[in-house]
Computed example of a mutant assay.
Amino acid sequence: MGELRRLAILDDYQGVALSMGPWSRLPSSIAVEVFRDTLKDPDALAARLAPFDAILAMRERTPFRATLLARLPNLKLLITTGEKNRSFDVAAAQARGVTVCGTPSVGAPTVDIAWGLILGLLRNLPEEVASLRAGGWQTTVGTSVEGLTLGVVGLGKLGSRMARIGAAFGMKVIAWSQNLTAEKAAAGGAELVSKAELFARADVVTLHLVLSDRSRGIVGAEDLARMKPGAILVNTSRGPLVDQPALVAALQAGRIRAGLDVFDEEPLPPGHPLLGCPGTLLTPHLGYVSTQNYAAYFEGAVQAIEGYLAGKPVMELTA
């Protein structure tokens, strides 16, 4: 371990990191610098980060692969908000003597956003809000949640919460994932069905899978084609779970609707095809963005720095 002199806080889009964390507990000898933009160019990113011996990354906004880590000779401590980060090459960091730590998180705020997207689309809230502001009144007829079928793809921590809330709304809940059993589905309040049946039966399909080589593109053109006309696909997990060109085509054809909080490329660039698709409710990856979660993140980051300085790392990540 040892001393730290410069801390970089990355990708603070809202400009809230310094006001939401107990940074005053850190030694005055540590200079803290906040960056509010995400650099995609590897040379510019390496040049920006090279002087720092401690870096706090906000989720996967800036990945730390072996190629980047090799260009950061001063780095001693790398922190991710949250308990883990699949965009970090932890083994490469450890090989370079870099300590990698996580932070606590609070609750499951992604579930809030998922239901916000579902309810917003079912009741046509974006259209009605725009109409009201333009002087209109009751221009659409929405759909109630009760009696609809919720299809949950991935019945883990978040998927199980989605299933319970769906049942509380009076929905029929069905579920599928590659390793899901009938017993586990029943325990989560859902009926196990095949992938094809889920996409054909569900009025709302919500995705709750970890992105991996096995799950990348797991929702393809055939799955989207099976969906009922006007059915809703909700993705608050990771953009690459869905074949994006197939999704754009289905949306442009007006066959389905989509509530999306995550995208293949983030931040979503101007002119991206999804921005012009009808039948969508799009949010800028707000799933984990809550005051409670941010407070836990930044408290955990300060604790990680304090632990490193004391020679006792906390929530250390290992390969």
Rank of each mutant, 00 (worst) to 15 (best):
V234H: 05
E60V: 04
N85M: 03
V100N: 10
L275C: 04
E127W: 12
D12Y: 07
S105I: 10
T181D: 01
G15I: 07
R238L: 08
F169R: 07
R36F: 08
E299D: 15
G156Y: 00
V314W: 11
L209A: 01
V242L: 05
P42N: 13
A225Y: 02
W176K: 00
G170Y: 05
R48P: 03
V32Q: 09
K40P: 13
S87E: 11
T38Q: 14
L77T: 04
I174W: 00
L224W: 03
S194P: 02
V302D: 14
V205C: 06
A246H: 06
G287L: 00
P126D: 04
V98A: 09
R257I: 01
A57I: 08
L274C: 06
L309Y: 05
L275S: 03
L224T: 14
V32Y: 12
M171L: 15
A221W: 03
G188A: 09
Q14C: 14
L282R: 04
V314N: 08
K76D: 05
G287V: 02
V16T: 13
P284K: 04
L150I: 05
R164Q: 15
L56Q: 13
C101R: 08
P22Y: 07
S237K: 03
I55A: 02
A17R: 02
L121A: 04
L4R: 06
P229V: 09
V173C: 03
L45Q: 09
T80C: 01
Y288D: 13
L148S: 13
G230Q: 10
G120F: 04
L121W: 05
L233G: 14
L211S: 01
N293W: 12
Y297I: 12
L122T: 12
K84W: 11
L121R: 06
G82N: 02
A250R: 01
